[in-house]
Simulated scan of single mutants.
Amino acid sequence: MSDTSQNAFDPPPAATGHLPSYVAPFRSPRGLATALTVLFGLTVGVDLLAVASDAHVWRLTDEMAGGGFVEDADLTRADALQVVGGVLQVTLLVATAVVFIIWFHRVRRNADFFALDSCEMKSGWAIGAWFVPIGNLWLPRKVAGEVWDASIDWESEARRPSHTPMNVWWALFVATWLVGRAASSAYEDAVSAAELKQAVERMMVSDALDAVAAVFALLFVRKLTRMQLDKATARQEQIPPQPRP
């Protein structure tokens, strides 16, 4: 199916019998998906740098735990690198989260364009689900699953697109969040060199996991965006030409 360069499609007329009198027009998520591609790419790069920084700190703490001597200057530099890496990660996290939620809300609204009653979770949940304590561990995945199913073009797809990209992304997202919280808590509570070494090991795992999660989040965004663009194009081609007044 050829790609579409339009940013929005009006819904088919109500006379077709497929849609009610008003449905919000389709709005292309491509620009937001492109921005997320850049942000997730930067996230992967910063996470890998953080892993390298963690590995350096681990070597220093391993030396200290073994009774070796480490220069204060080396510890200061390592600590500075950790701070810089942390600031970059938080900055990217906030920027990516904002753009991702905007994209997520848009693809949820587009699901109504394809089939108004296909989603149990209303479009507001595409934003609100992320801020529900405990519930944010599964509610966004429920919204994503409904949007995914509504975005399938059953007439052109030879088989149902696998939920694997979405499921792997969500599993990694939750795992990264849980491991990251445990690693941060262990790092803050570490007193001895041995405890610091164990905390840094957890941080390495957390940063590496975050990089992998970013890759799969990107795959999910690109796949769902492509599904919606293809289905919108097919829908537009099926609309019969309207007589001029």
Rank of each mutant, 00 (worst) to 15 (best):
M64Y: 03
T4A: 11
T96P: 06
V168F: 08
F9M: 05
I101K: 03
A232N: 00
L196Q: 13
P12W: 03
P12V: 08
P25A: 09
R30W: 03
E71W: 10
A199F: 06
V94D: 01
T61N: 12
F216V: 11
P13K: 04
S2T: 13
L42F: 15
P165W: 09
V107F: 04
A50E: 09
M64N: 04
S162L: 01
Q228C: 11
L19H: 14
E201C: 07
T91V: 15
R226N: 09
A190C: 04
D54F: 07
G128K: 00
T225N: 09
S5Y: 12
R30H: 11
L36G: 03
V57T: 15
L172K: 01
H163E: 12
E188N: 12
D54W: 09
I101E: 00
H18N: 08
A111D: 07
L137W: 09
Q198R: 14
M203C: 10
W138N: 02
P12R: 14
A144C: 00
S206P: 02
P245C: 00
G124W: 13
P245D: 10
V98N: 02
G67E: 03
W148M: 04
Y187H: 10
R30S: 14
L75C: 03
A33V: 04
Y22L: 07
A50Y: 08
R77Y: 04
V132P: 01
Y187Q: 07
V215T: 10
A158Y: 13
E188T: 14
L19V: 14
A199P: 10
Q238R: 15
F26K: 01
C119R: 05
V38L: 13
T4W: 05
G45K: 07
V179R: 05
V107W: 07
A52D: 06
A115G: 06
S21W: 12
S156G: 00
F114P: 12
D149K: 13
V174A: 00
A194L: 12
V179F: 02
P29Y: 02
E63L: 15
V83P: 00
G135T: 06
S21C: 05
F26A: 02
Q238G: 04
L139T: 09
Q236M: 09
G128D: 01
D62M: 11
M64E: 15
V46S: 10
N7S: 10
Q6A: 14
A211M: 11
T176D: 07
L42D: 03
G180Y: 01
A158E: 14
R30E: 13
T91Q: 02
A8L: 12
A52W: 10
M121Y: 14
H163P: 11
S162K: 00
F9L: 05
E195Q: 11
V168K: 03
F26Y: 15
W148D: 06
A65D: 12
E120D: 13
E155D: 11
G45A: 15
D62W: 05
F216N: 05
L178P: 05
C119T: 12
I152F: 08
V143Q: 08
G31E: 10
T4N: 04
A15K: 06
D149Y: 06
P241Y: 08
N167A: 14
P140N: 01
L178H: 02
V221R: 08
T4Q: 08
Q6F: 13
A190R: 04
V57P: 00
G67V: 03
G67M: 00
L218Y: 15
P20S: 02
G41T: 10
D207Q: 09
F9D: 05
F220L: 08
S151N: 03
H56D: 09
E157R: 13
